[in-house]
């Protein structure tokens, strides 16, 4: 029920099951017969559960983080949009050919102020997943995002984007309609937007498909989200010709929020509720909202030129290399 379905969550699931059974009607009546107060008896177990959870979730490997980021119960863009913003008015279509539902966007209010939001949206059940192409946008999705971003610029309101995709679609239609061009154009156009742009990676930041809505003045990542140039499976297939070595590949790619922060590629890591965002979506949304408001306030004083120049400097600073004459 809490979504404790990963191997590394087994000790947690066992403790939770034990506590639940003790606290069940049956457990309570048994304890009462023995003259035991169940709540007092369970207390050390609950403390132990908390301790185990802190240990497990505080030390997740890169692959475990990937699994967390892909958790079937993980909150998606629309969950946060509904909890953080008011009066969300969803817009549809790229005004060219289609409405790609892997990307959602629209007008909203943040603490009463008008803003524009864009998010990558996976589906909750199979039907919705198919409708949204599992969160993998095609060209139409990136063009829809750009079209909505331009509304924000036109009306001089801030733009918030939420990243959550395994990657852009790579099928025939995506290729025919120019998914590469659509991503490339977003990278360029987002770098030139004359409004504050705040990006949050809420789940999976999968390669170019993620980056296509992730150029901004601030980039935040949730504690257990990931951001990578290639999926661990894809990397493992290339490196070791074995998709099963995704665990090792995730380590090699260092795709965690913590490492991205260390490389100065993201500005802040937002702590998740113990056990992951899906265990307490409301708390997670509160943390996220506080951070979005704070970063927006910091950016709000900047003029348009300062913003655009700052965004360019930010991108220009990304990269690690040596600059010296060899030999």
């Amino acid at each position: 029920m809490q979504g404790t379905n990963f191997d590394f969550e087994k000790p947690i699931a066992e403790l939770e099951a034990m506590i639940a059974s003790l606290k069940s009607v049956e457990g309570r009546s048994k304890a009462a017969a023995e003259g035991i107060d169940i709540d007092t008896a369970v207390e050390p177990l609950e403390l132990e559960l908390h301790r185990v959870m802190e240990k497990v979730y505080g030390n997740l490997s890169a692959w475990e983080k990937t699994q967390m980021a892909r958790h079937k119960d993980r909150p998606y863009s629309l969950d946060y949009i509904r909890l953080i913003f008011d009066d969300f008015f969803e817009l549809h279509g790229d005004r060219l050919a289609a409405n790609d539902e892997a990307i959602v966007g629209g007008l909203a209010k943040l603490n009463g102020q008008p803003v524009v939001v864009i998010g990558q949206q996976k589906g909750r059940d199979l039907k919705e997943r198919q409708r949204r192409n599992f969160g993998s946008a095609r060209a139409e999705g990136f063009r829809k995002a750009l079209r909505i971003a331009r509304l924000a610029e036109k009306f001089r309101v801030p733009l918030f984007t939420f990243v959550d995709t395994a990657g852009a679609a790579a099928d025939l239609r995506a290729e025919e309609h120019g998914v590469s061009e659509a991503i490339a154009r977003n990278l360029m156009e987002f770098s030139l937007l004359r409004i504050p742009v705040i990006v949050t990676v809420i789940g999976e930041g999968g390669s170019g498909g993620a980056l296509g809505v992730a150029v901004g003045d601030r980039v935040l990542m949730l504690e257990h989200s990931v951001y990578s140039v290639i999926s661990p499976e894809g990397c493992a297939a290339i490196l070791w010709r074995d998709k099963a070595m995704a665990n090792e590949a995730a380590d090699a790619l260092k795709l965690t929020a913590q490492y991205a922060h260390q490389l100065n590629l993201v500005d802040e890591i937002l702590p998740e509720p113990l056990g992951g965002a899906h265990r307490n979506v409301t708390d997670m949304a509160l943390t996220l909202k506080e951070a979005l408001v704070r970063h927006l306030n910091e950016l709000s004083g900047s003029g348009e030129t300062t913003l655009v120049d700052g965004r360019y400097s930010r991108l220009r600073s990304m990269g690690v290399f040596q600059e010296k004459v060899s030999r």
Binding site: L187, S207, S228, V229, I230, L253, Y312, L315, G319
Partner: peptide, 21 residues
């Protein structure tokens, strides 16, 4: 992108595109 540089290499897509901008 050069997989061996992880997220840093992904960011080169944004860097080069911004320069073209």
């Amino acid at each position: 992108a050069r997989m061996q540089e992880g997220l840093l290499s992904l960011m080169q897509m944004a860097k080069t595109s911004a320069a073209v901008g």
